[in-house]
Design a protein around this nucleic acid. Structure first.
Length: 467
RNA sequence: GGCGUCGUAGCCAAGUGGUUAAGGCGGCGGUCUGCAAAAUCGCUAUCGUGGGUUCGACUCCCACCGACGCCUCCA
């Protein structure tokens, strides 16, 4: 089966056919750097990471651009409140963002362009929209007229005439300077509340609207038409809808072929958002002792298009599951048998890999892909006392291959410090002498250090507890 | 008011017009073990409710109940 994605534009799963045969261009909406990112944001970034990793796994050359929104109402408001420059204010959160995504092993995008570095490109677009008659000026600001773009609403599947102004309760309903309530701002006239944040340009003194930056930067780096655009479901409307209007309004070409959106992460049954106050930051979970791998796994294990009700239960279950896989890896790495089973093991692995890929091909069905891994492990375990070093190489190879996509496994824990090895040896002697008292004592001692010993027919096997 | 998603075991979570309804966590019982651990075997769901279509539905349609989301700067 070929790679398929659910396209928000058509609300269907479609075969993925990139513009260039072996290349994929992706634009992913990044953070607005006015605060630390929370785990809901991270879920979306992780979805995008899995998407990029899997495309690379399939052999595509991936060009991913992720923007940083470093000028908007909130960044301006907060920087003025704190009496620091906009740049100093956003710099702190840019750095925090990179630290967080690195912690969760998210593959870096090719480029992270900032809105403030692309004002010129935005101005060019706005001029073109004015020339096309799609934009109009009002009280120093410039607006996009949605009635001039016939396909407005095609992404969100909203009826232009049926938009209920102010229904979300998010936006004040007093913007009477607009011709149509659905029109959105391209260029915002300067007001005193903006402090020293403004650009003096051919459009007048002011700053860009939110949506225009993504049109400008995506087309600059990926071209007028590119393959995939992603974000959280909340971006579908208005942000992505408006991006389409602005971009296609200028180019009269399809802006994006595949729109992919990840669902929300809820906390206590509700959407997690800074405005509701029910947010969890990565650091909160690290402080509770959950490892980065466990956190990453807990956020990627369910399908990107289903809502997740996040809780410590989920994290606890993720921890146990991951421990199980790592335990398996550690047992494998301690196999020291000359004769290998060969073909039966190869067959198990081939079947597992095929299932894994078929699952991910089908719109990144992660639950099913993980099931393929667990089933493979179970099959191997049935013959575990007969496998040899060559089999182990294949098995570890399989896990490493799947981990190119998952990014959660650690293959480097396979050594013991000298003093610990000495204790293991001593316990071995004690056991041989049937000195179970001393033997159990050492086992308890090692357990305190996070090392679990198991006595198997093939000798002692040890494992480390998950962090 | 408009649009949409979802409801599968104690918990998490796939999936299909006819299959033994994946997998993970947890629990119970057996095997193994000096004890343990691990592993393995077995058990732990008829798919929100009520109708309809059909030879046959958990899967399609309708209604209802419940949860969640979007409706102009939230991932």
């Amino acid at each position: 089966m070929s790679l398929r994605f659910f396209n928000t534009l058509t609300r269907k799963k479609e075969d993925f056919v990139p513009i260039n045969e072996r290349e994929v261009s992706i634009y992913t909406c990044g953070p607005t750097v006015y605060n630390y990112i929370h785990i809901g944001n991270l879920r979306t970034f992780l979805f995008e990471d899995i998407l990029v990793r899997y495309l690379k796994y399939k052999g595509y050359e991936v060009h991913q651009i992720m923007n940083l929104t470093d000028v908007d109402d909130k960044t301006i408001r907060n920087s003025i409140q704190q009496n620091v420059s906009l740049n100093d204010y956003t710099q702190k959160f840019k750095e925090a963002f990179f630290k967080d995504i690195q912690s969760l092993n998210i593959t870096p995008a090719e480029k992270y362009p900032c809105a403030t570095d692309h004002i010129d490109e935005m101005i060019t677009l706005i001029h073109q929209l004015e020339e096309n008659g799609m934009a109009y000026r009002s009280e120093g600001s410039i607006y996009f007229s949605i009635n001039k773009f016939n396909e407005y609403g095609k992404l969100a599947h909203l009826d232009r005439d049926n938009l209920k102004a102010g229904a979300s309760g998010r936006v004040s309903n007093d913007e009477y300077e607009k011709e149509n309530i659905g029109d959105f701002v391209l260029w915002k006239a300067y007001t005193p509340e903006d402090g020293d944040v403004y650009w003096d340009t051919s459009l007048g003194k002011g700053r860009p609207g939110w949506h225009i930056e993504c049109s400008a930067m995506s087309m600059k780096y990926l071209g007028e038409t590119f393959d995939i655009h992603t974000g959280g479901v909340d971006n579908i409307f208005p942000h992505h809808e408006n991006e389409i209007a602005q971009s296609e309004g200028v180019t009269e070409k399809p802006f994006v072929h595949y729109w992919l959106h990840s669902e929300f992460l809820n906390i206590s049954g509700e959407k997690s958002s800074k405005s509701k106050g029910n947010v969890i930051y990565l650091q909160d979970l690290l402080d509770k002792g959950f490892s980065k791998e466990v956190i990453r796994f807990s956020l990627i294990q369910s399908h990107y298009r289903s809502k997740v009700n996040y809780s410590e239960d989920i994290l606890g279950q993720a921890k146990s599951t991951l421990e199980g896989i790592h335990h398996f890896i550690q047992r494998c790495q301690q196999v020291d048998r000359e004769e290998s089973l060969g073909e039966p093991i190869t067959a198990i692995i081939d079947k597992g890999l095929k299932r894994f890929e078929e699952a991910l091909d089908d719109d990144l069905n992660m639950s099913s892909a993980l099931a393929a891994i667990f089933e493979t492990i179970r099959e191997v375990n049935k013959d575990f006392d007969q496998i040899g070093r060559e089999d182990v190489q294949k098995i570890i190879g399989f896990l490493k291959r799947t981990d190119q996509v998952l990014g959660i496994l650690d293959f480097e824990k396979s050594f013991l410090e000298e003093d610990i090895q000495r204790l293991v040896d001593e316990r071995n002697q004690a056991r041989k002498a049937k000195d179970y008292h001393r033997s159990d004592q050492i086992r308890d001692q090692l357990k305190d250090k996070g090392i679990i010993l198991e006595d198997t027919p093939q000798g002692i096997v040890w494992k480390r507890l998950e962090g």
